[in-house]
């Protein structure tokens, strides 16, 4: 059944309980939850760069963590290569050989590297822990090769440096190298360039593309930045308060957004063209993103949506097909 699909999520949910006082819990009669991810289903094809985009608190990072096993879903299933992996506790991932196949690249190159380790040791650790090298020579070769692949050249010069001796861009390359050192099949890259200066972002983004074309790696690219999403991505899902509101081919979703939230998001993004920017009409929502504790009933956007109708506050909108492989979840688009 897997065929072309590498990763599949079915009705994925992740709720975090909110700590309340004993009295409050009696008065309320029920526990309250942060619904970080609330019933999300999607498929990621082999060799695809799939993007999840959304603002702070949308649940995009939690979705990524669920896929790499850093969080366990409250309910729903995750399939990898046709096999169900969502029930496997994280401690058994290594035994199942999943750790070698599924990796993550983190956002902050300043916080995600051990400051007391040489670059060499940072890259050696996953190889040793997962017992994929049999000799010191092999270890050395693989690390040097990976450093070269992330364009830290000459590799011998970078291998025996500490993270603080590297610039932000070089550190992020080390973070990418660490994510790729086990030669995984699927990598979740969570905002891999958001801490970098604009002039060097493209370099790191191009690395993802290179690993895809060279090794056939499949990526989930998580970002708040639709411009970089468009640059690297194939398909995109726009996330709002724990739900996907629109999915489709990246260019199609950005050029022809159908959901009011996507429209607002796209029109808020500055465009590096002063003439166009002065003509452009913004589509605005009311207020700001609410907390995912007790999100609004019905469509989660309805209190902020200028186009909201009666039904929006009562019933959750269905996912509607609006174009080839393009779906949006909005009552305006549904046939009633």
């Amino acid at each position: 059944m897997s065929g072309n699909i590498l990763v599949k999520a079915v009705h994925l949910k992740k709720y975090y309980p909110v700590r309340t006082s004993f009295l409050e819990s009696i008065l309320r009669g029920e526990r309250i939850f942060v619904k970080a991810v609330d019933d999300v289903s999607f498929e990621i094809k082999r060799k695809e760069i799939f993007v999840i985009a959304g603002e702070t608190g949308s649940g995009k990072t939690t979705t990524g963590k669920l896929l790499v096993g850093l969080e366990e879903p409250t309910s729903g299933e995750i399939y990898y290569n046709g096999e169900k992996i969502s029930g496997i506790p994280i401690k058994k991932w290594k035994k199942h050989g999943l750790r070698k196949k599924i990796q993550m690249i983190f956002q902050d190159p300043y916080e995600s590297l051990n400051p007391r380790q040489y670059v060499f040791d940072i890259l050696a650790e996953p190889l040793i822990v997962n017992k994929v090298v049999s000799s010191r020579e092999e270890l050395y070769d693989r690390i040097m090769r990976k450093l070269e692949e992330v364009k830290l050249i000459p590799p011998e010069e970078f291998a025996f440096r500490y993270p603080h001796e590297l610039s932000g861009g070089q550190r992020q390359r080390v973070v990418v190298a660490r994510g790729m050192i086990l030669e995984p099949e699927f990598v979740v890259a969570d905002e891999p360039v958001s801490m970098l200066d604009a002039s060097i972002r493209a370099n790191v983004l191009d690395l993802l593309e290179e690993f895809r074309s060279k090794y056939g790696v499949t990526f989930l690219y998580i970002t708040h930045d639709l411009a970089t999403a468009r640059y690297v991505g194939d398909r995109i899902a726009i996330m709002y308060l724990g739900k996907f509101v629109e999915t489709g081919p990246v260019d199609e979703v950005i050029q022809n957004p159908q959901h009011p939230y996507t429209k607002a998001l796209v029109s808020a993004i500055p465009v590096p063209d002063p003439e166009y920017a002065r003509k452009k009409k913004r589509f605005e929502l009311y207020g700001e993103i609410p907390t995912p504790i007790n999100p609004p009933k019905g469509c989660r956007l309805h209190p902020r949506c200028p186009l909201a109708m009666d039904i929006c506050s009562r019933e959750e909108p269905p996912m509607v097909k609006v174009g080839p492989d393009h779906y949006a979840s909005c009552w305006l688009l549904a046939k009633r």
Partner: peptide
Amino acid sequence: QGLIGAVPSIRGPKKKLVALPGE
């Protein structure tokens, strides 16, 4: 020119970005 060429946009044709070399 380099800065502008390195920045992706959500408008216009998708172009290959050229990052500035070095730091």
